[in-house]
């Protein structure tokens, strides 16, 4: 892969743990690549798998779920999240999307080293494997939306819209 490829990496960081952890890295004036961006989330357990697949279809090359792990402030949310990501990764594998694009980890409020390690490793991995195949992701996304609506047999269900091509 040409070294000029800049992967777009999204970190979904929990309000209680990983987001302050990412702040701590900046406060220490330690650097990581600027193609890594962090979104604050209450708990990543809220995302259905089609959110991740849609993100890949939109051109996000890699996602790191930076959760609280066993320090999660919500009852039972972490095991549930882990199970959901497990299922997603299986679908990515069979659907032809590199599973290296998804990483789930726990980052605490002061876990500076862990944060840097995770984002740098993701960056290096993606620079090797190259940009995400957006068509593959879009297909998986459609399958996932259909799967979610399957068996409900109710006309109220909207068919998934095709992923528009964006910039």
């Amino acid at each position: 892969m040409a070294s000029s490829f800049e992967p777009k990496i999204l970190v979904l960081a929990t309000v209680a743990c990983a987001y302050p952890g990412a702040d701590a890295v900046g406060k220490a004036h330690l650097e990581y690549p600027a193609n890594i961006s962090v979104f604050r989330v209450p708990s990543p357990v809220l995302f259905p798998e089609d959110f991740y697949l849609r993100s890949y279809a939109r051109g996000v090359d890699g996602i790191i779920i930076a959760a609280c792990g066993s320090d999660c402030p919500y009852h039972n949310a972490y095991p549930k999240l882990a199970a959901r990501i497990d299922a997603l990764v299986k679908k990515m594998k069979t659907g032809g999307l590199e599973i290296e694009r998804m990483r789930i980890t726990a980052i605490c409020t002061v876990c500076i080293k862990a944060f840097l390690k995770e984002v740098n490793e993701m960056d290096q991995r993606l620079r090797k494997i190259g940009p995400v195949n957006r068509d593959t992701a879009a297909k998986l996304w459609e399958d996932s939306r259909r799967g979610m609506c399957a068996g409900l047999n109710l006309p109220a269900i909207r068919r998934p819209e095709p992923v528009p091509v964006f910039a």
Binding site: S43, P48, S55, R58, H75, N76, A77, K80, M148
Partner: peptide
């Protein structure tokens, strides 16, 4: 916590201030 949000087939349930369409738009 949003544990419920992920499973709704119609996205009828959402976290106020952190809705899935907001996250989709952020990704875009």
């Amino acid at each position: 916590c949003g544990a419920c949000v992920a499973v709704c087939p119609t996205r009828a349930i959402d976290l106020k201030g952190w809705t899935l369409s907001q996250f989709d738009a952020m990704v875009d």
